[in-house]
């Protein structure tokens, strides 16, 4: 019983991580246009004023060793509550509070069975497709600059 609850908890966490990542890693204008295309949205309330702060970005020595502080990055933060009381949290790179509020709204909707499918179908799937297309385009540009070395067979003469 406890195990299945934990499993369910893990599924919710993964769904929230996916929804948040898709909103945060796509342009605000794209995300907003998709939300605006929905016929209906949950009523929302800001639980605290949205604000801009800093996150210290960390790296690892040698790429996979001990952590060190690389430098800071502005992040917008929002906390939104939807009508049934579910609270969503958004943290998005940059200083765009609207973007963070959309991330918080998605985070709240993905936790609410009444909204989860609408979010998935009309927001998350299109965002995932656009992101994949964008990444594939960049990766094709990179692949076109891959060096193809000419190899010569050196004949060492008859054995």
């Amino acid at each position: 019983m406890a195990e299945s609850e934990m499993q369910q908890g893990q599924e919710v966490v993964e769904a929230r991580q996916r929804a948040h990542a898709l909103v945060a890693r796509n342009p605000q204008e794209t995300v907003r246009a998709l939300f605006e295309s929905l016929p209906d949205l949950p009523a929302t309330q800001r639980l605290r004023p949205s604000e801009t702060g800093l996150i210290m970005v960390r790296g690892r020595i040698g790429g996979d060793g001990a952590r060190f502080n690389l430098g800071e990055m502005p992040v917008a933060r929002a906390t939104m509550q939807i009508a049934n009381g579910t609270v969503g949290v958004g943290y998005v790179i940059g200083r765009d509070h609207d973007h963070a509020e959309l991330a918080a709204l998605a985070d709240a909707m993905v936790q609410d069975p009444a909204w989860r499918d609408v979010l998935e179908q009309h927001i998350l799937v299109p965002l995932a497709e656009q992101q994949a297309a964008r990444e594939a385009l960049e990766a094709r540009k990179a692949a076109a600059t891959k060096v193809e070395f000419f190899t010569m067979v050196r004949n060492r003469g008859p054995k």
């Binding site: 702060g53 960390r58 790296g59 990055m73 943290y91």
Partner: peptide, 17 residues
């Protein structure tokens, strides 16, 4: 600006090169 916290260490081996 206020400091919200620290990131997880970025993974350069997973970089979109």
């Amino acid at each position: 600006l206020p400091r919200f916290g620290m990131s997880q260490a970025v993974s350069t081996k997973d970089m979109a090169v």
